[in-house]
Write a protein that binds this DNA or RNA. Structure first.
Lengths: 302, 302
DNA sequence: GATGGCCATAAGAAACCTCTATGACTGCTC
DNA sequence: GAGCAGTCATAGAGGTTTCTTATGGCCATC
C-alpha cells in the first residue's frame, strides 16, 4: 500500500535500462530484489507497469509515464538533499545576524570579506539595530547570531567576548589638547563635546563615566549617526566622545584620538547566541571569520 | 546515509505541527519512532533541523527550509501516485487504438460516446489505418488495441470476433434492380460498378467473391475513400459494392442496399491485442464500450 | 515542591528487505 | 532439433531496519 523511494528508483532504473537485470545492477541490487520492488509498486498502484515475457520486460504506457513522473520527483528530491548537504558543509546557507551599527560599519565588512573568500555560498542578512535590540533579536530567534553589548546576564543567551571597545576622545585637526597623552572627564567637561543621542549605549556609557567623576555630561552637539558626529568633530565644533571601534580613521585621517582615563569608559562587545541552540554550519563559518578579523588578531584593518 | 520517505514525512509533520508528539500522532506513529526518523534525517544530511529543549522543539532555519522543500517533493509524489491510481481505476488514462477507417467512421463514434459517459477521463488516440496495418500497429506495440481484419492466424496476437461485415450492393435511387431481394456476382458483373481502390481489403474481398463465381471484377469507377464511392453511387454512375458497416445510411438516406449472394462476401472484424500483454484499465473500458456498441447489441445506431 | 508536558533512550518484537539458489520460458546457434 | 544463453519469477534464510512499550530527564507551571 505504501510507496517507498526504493520502488521509485527501481521503476525509473528498470524503464531506463529496459531490463530488470540491468536495473538491478545499476542500483547495486540483485535481480530478485528489484523484481520484488517493481511488483510491490504495481500492487500499491494497482497498475501493470511492465509486460513480462520470457525474453524480457517492456514498460506499458502507464509504466513509462509513471517512470518519467517519478524521475522528476527523484531529481527534485536529490536537488533538495544536495542543497541541504551544501548547507551542512558550510558551503552555503543563510545567517541572520543582528549587529550594532557601529560594528556593522567597521569590523563587519572585513569579516564578511573574509567569509566570502572561504565560503562564497554563504548569505548573511545583516540586521543593524541599536545596542539593546541585538540581544532581543537573538533571544526571539529572529537572528541566529548577535554582535553587541549585553546589559546584564541572561540565562537564555550565551555570550562570548569579542573585544573591548573603548570610548575615546576624538579631536579636530590642530586642537589645543592634541599634545596631551590622556584626557579625563574633568578636562573634557570644560570643552564643547559631540556625542550620540541620549538612549544610545555609547551615550549611557559616557554619562556613567562622567557621573563617577562627579560630573554631568552636557554635550554641545548630539547626533544620531556616528558619521554625523564625526563630521561635526571634523568641522571643529567640539571634541567627540565616541567608541574607538566605530571610528574608521581611514575615512577621517585628519582626526586624532586620545584615550580617556575613566574606568567605565569601555564596553565589552560580545558575540551572542541562543543558549542550547547549536549554530548552523554557515553561522559557525561566520563566527570563525569574525574571530579572525578582531582588532587584536593582526588580520583586521586598524 | 540514505534518505527515506518516512523521514521526509516526519520532518514535514514535525515542522507543521511544531511538536514531535503531535507529528507522531498525525502520522499514526509513536513519538519515539518519529524522534528516531528525525534523528536519522539529521544524520543523513549532517544538519541540525531542530533545536531541542525540555519544553519542546523549534525548527532551525535549515529545518524550516528543508521541510518546505520536502513538502513540495511529497506533494508532487502524491499527485503522481494519485494519477496512477486514477489510471488503475480506469477513471483516466490513454488508449492507443488502431482501427479500420470504415469502422472508425461508423461504429467507433458511438462506442466513444458510450465510453465518455462511463469514463470521462479516458483519452483515446485513434489511428485510422488501412486494414493490413491494424495488426502491424498492434504487433509493434504502437497501438494497444486494434479493430480490423486479420489476414491469417498470428501467434503474437489475440483476436476476438466483434462482428461480421458484409459487402452489400448499394443502389442509386430508382435503380431497376431495386426490386430484387438479393443480387449475385453474375448479375452485378453486367452493371457498371463502383468500388474502392485495388489493394484495399474491401476490393480484395470482392475480387475473390467474383473469382469464385468464375467472373472477373471490372469496376467502372474506383475511389480511395468510401465517402467518394458513395457519392458516385448517389450520382447514378453505378452500383456500389461496399462494406455494410462502412455505410452510414443516415448520411445518404436515398440509397438502397441489397445483400449479395456469395460466400466470400463477408469479412470478420476482429478486436486485436498483443498476446500476453494485459490490457490497461483504460483499454478494458474501451473494449467494454465497443462490445456494447456492436451492431447486434441493440444499443448502437443502425 | 509536586505535577504535567515534552522529548530522549533502551530493549524486545515485528516487518521489511536482500541475497542465494533454483525454476520456467524463449530465442539462438550449431 | 537439442543445447545454450539470457531473462524474469519464486522460495527460504538471514540480516537490517523500524516500530512499540516502558522509562527517565528536564523545564514550566500550579
Amino acid at each position: 500500500m505504501a510507496i517507498s523511494l526504493r520502488q521509485l528508483r527501481a521503476l525509473v532504473a528498470a524503464v531506463e535500462t529496459g531490463s530488470f537485470g540491468r536495473a538491478a545492477a545499476r542500483l547495486h541490487l540483485s535481480q530478485p530484489a528489484l523484481t520484488v520492488q517493481i511488483r510491490g509498486l504495481e500492487e500499491a498502484l494497482g497498475l501493470t507497469l511492465f509486460e513480462r515475457s520470457a525474453r524480457g520486460v517492456r514498460p506499458t504506457a502507464a509504466g513509462l509515464g509513471t517512470a518519467q513522473a517519478f524521475r522528476r520527483v527523484l531529481d527534485a528530491l536529490d536537488e533538495v538533499v544536495a542543497g541541504a548537504r551544501e548547507q551542512a558543509a558550510g558551503r552555503s546557507g543563510t545567517v541572520h545576524l543582528a549587529v550594532l551599527p557601529s560594528v556593522a560599519a567597521t569590523l563587519l565588512p572585513a569579516a564578511l570579506v573574509r567569509l566570502r573568500q572561504a565560503h562564497p555560498g554563504i548569505r548573511v542578512l545583516v540586521q543593524d539595530v541599536v545596542a539593546g535590540r541585538v540581544a532581543e533579536r537573538v533571544k526571539a530567534g529572529e537572528a541566529e547570531l548577535g554582535i553587541g553589548t549585553l546589559p546584564g546576564p541572561d540565562a537564555s543567551l550565551e555570550a562570548e567576548p569579542l573585544f573591548e571597545d573603548d570610548l575615546v576622545a576624538v579631536l579636530p585637526p590642530g586642537h589645543a589638547l592634541a599634545a596631551a597623552a590622556c584626557l579625563t572627564p574633568a578636562i573634557l567637561s570644560a570643552e564643547p563635546l559631540v556625542l550620540t543621542d541620549p538612549g544610545s549605549s555609547v551615550r549611557a556609557l559616557a554619562e556613567r563615566a562622567f557621573a563617577e567623576a562627579g560630573l554631568v555630561l552636557r554635550p554641545a552637539y548630539e547626533a544620531t549617526y556616528m558619521s554625523t558626529a564625526v563630521a561635526l568633530v571634523r568641522a571643529g565644533l567640539g571634541i567627540g566622545v565616541l567608541p574607538a571601534a566605530a571610528l574608521d580613521l581611514r575615512l577621517a585621517p585628519v582626526l586624532q584620538t586620545l584615550p580617556i582615563a575613566a574606568s567605565a569608559m569601555r564596553r565589552g562587545i560580545l558575540l551572542l547566541r541562543r543558549r542550547g541552540g547549536s549554530l548552523s554550519p554557515a553561522a559557525e563559518a561566520l563566527v570563525e571569520a569574525v574571530r579572525h578579523t578582531l582588532p587584536g588578531s593582526g588580520v583586521a584593518a586598524s
